[in-house]
Write a protein that binds this DNA or RNA. Sequence first.
DNA 1: AGTATCCATGGGAACGTGCCCAAAATTCGG
DNA 2: CCGAATTTTGGGCACGTTCCCATGGATACT
Lengths: 336, 336
Amino acid sequence: MKRVTIKDLSKYLLLSTSTISRALVNDKNIHPDTKKKVLDAAEKLGYKPNTAALNLKYGQSKSIGVVVPEMTTPFSSMLLSGIQNILYPLGYRVIITPSDETPSIERKNLLHLEEFNVDGIIINLCHESYNDDVYQQIMDRGTPLVFFDRIPGKSIDASKVMVNDNIKAALMVEHLISTGRKRIAHIMGPSTIRNANERAAGYQRILDKHGIFDPDLVIKSEGTTFEHGRIAAQQLLNNKIKFDSIFAFTDTLAIGAMNYLLEQRIKIPEQIAVASFSGTELATIVHPKLTSVEQPLVQMGEVAARLILEKINDSTAASKTVILDAELVYRASTQL
Amino acid sequence: MKRVTIKDLSKYLLLSTSTISRALVNDKNIHPDTKKKVLDAAEKLGYKPNTAALNLKYGQSKSIGVVVPEMTTPFSSMLLSGIQNILYPLGYRVIITPSDETPSIERKNLLHLEEFNVDGIIINLCHESYNDDVYQQIMDRGTPLVFFDRIPGKSIDASKVMVNDNIKAALMVEHLISTGRKRIAHIMGPSTIRNANERAAGYQRILDKHGIFDPDLVIKSEGTTFEHGRIAAQQLLNNKIKFDSIFAFTDTLAIGAMNYLLEQRIKIPEQIAVASFSGTELATIVHPKLTSVEQPLVQMGEVAARLILEKINDSTAASKTVILDAELVYRASTQL
DNA sequence: AGTATCCATGGGAACGTGCCCAAAATTCGG
DNA sequence: CCGAATTTTGGGCACGTTCCCATGGATACT
């Protein structure tokens, strides 16, 4: 099945390719009758513009790369729908590459995307510094980068989208305190993730303020999977430290922890309340439903897409950092 | 930042573009010294082949479209990693478009992907027949299609990958019976999905065989979300029908149902056992963990990718239907 | 030494499109 | 009714790459 080109139309209608082209791109220098004839023939023969030719012509690939740390939770998929909301109507392809929370894979993905000639890359890091050199290289070579959610530790001249982790974590801890909790444990994310440190800082700030901070209450998790959450909960219980609630770095960790507690026949929230940070459906599909900081994920994706478009359309555009608001949603896991 | 082309190398080394090209593609008709010089210069100047030019040259876009009904569960992401395992090493881009379980969006996505000139499309349907005409059109126009998981109802000449829904559903129901359950309810998926009918048929076949089938035990769900599962469970309880277990069309429905039961303080599995069908992590992150038919999702993705490659590389290749095995995993939701 | 063979390189067309420039066809003003 | 202005069309180059064909030079054989 040979594809129909402008040349085919040209032969078919006995018109030059220039005229055909003009009809197709809505050029004003063309007779309405001719234009109609061309459009009809294009429809009839099933003409489809060849994107490869256009890409070559304009030096753009009309595709955007997205790097996410994982795709097994709805987190990334919500961000993606935001990104696609903006980019698909503009004719961009979106190419997604999961890094599996592994910096070396992230690195490979980035270079791979560059190889694909993407016009820009939107990325949610898995390590705050490991690939700093690559980010800079890629940008130096002319491909704009936009960071979202997990941004680099070191300041890099690129647009960024995120929420205020520190403040929102603090507010969530305040909520736990307001429900009478005093021994609030924290399952902290890997310290190679900037947000983990920010949220931990917000947590500590409030406990300090109330004079109830205890370093033993903080468990540093080495990863972000459900299993890591389980392990953290197990550690907390094994440590024989008293605690009446948990604030976890993410939904995933919180749910893993919750499962372990439930298996140990601990009642949530009666004995231990659980709160976390995210913005996905995950919080509502467990029992009891999880109190969490709901990030506006779809909106974050949309903003990230707009920021990358700005950079693509004007490579000298100033970098912007957009901080979105997140809402605290109180559910059964912290309320009797 | 202008990109480096073969012409730049040509000027830089005072060699023709032909020679540069030969060096780059490992042609044998080139002096080793020249080749080394070119390769070094390419490295030094940061030459990257222009994919758009290659795509134009070879008439392929080196990209594959994937249409999935949803992306909020790990289901699609596991399939995607399978697909990407195969396609990325071969230099293919993968473009993902979620249809949101809406046939009209699926239709739009398919046409959109065709517009993008993808070399092939891998699709998991959201309706067994609504878009039949488009599938056929797209294939007629020369873009191969591969169906996986949810395949079309009507027979279409295209490769397909799936598991044997009927048999596996039957085995799962046998398991419930073997644990002493006699009143097994079924939350059936929308009958516009072939698999829903197949699994329901497997369910009924076994209940009939044991003479314990009761049509009142079957709830037809209108959708596949967690919420639909909740509603189904609610209906079951409201109907005042006695039942001691549930076999659900998918994990998602099962978990939604489980949540409702737990909220009603019903004990799982003591009072009601729950089993389902899927193959994702979801089954293990709820409490109690969910017994389910584990489909080899990553493998399914890999097979789908290989099948589409076959069709791309030889448009006359015969269509294949691959049926993969699925494993029953028994967890806490059905065992005391 | 002359010719045939081989190797390394250069020239240029092609993929499909848009756009610049020129040419043809039409309209307009006097 | 003729030249000028305007509209409509055609020719051909460019984007970056590969590959066929041709060319030049070196080597081998008679």
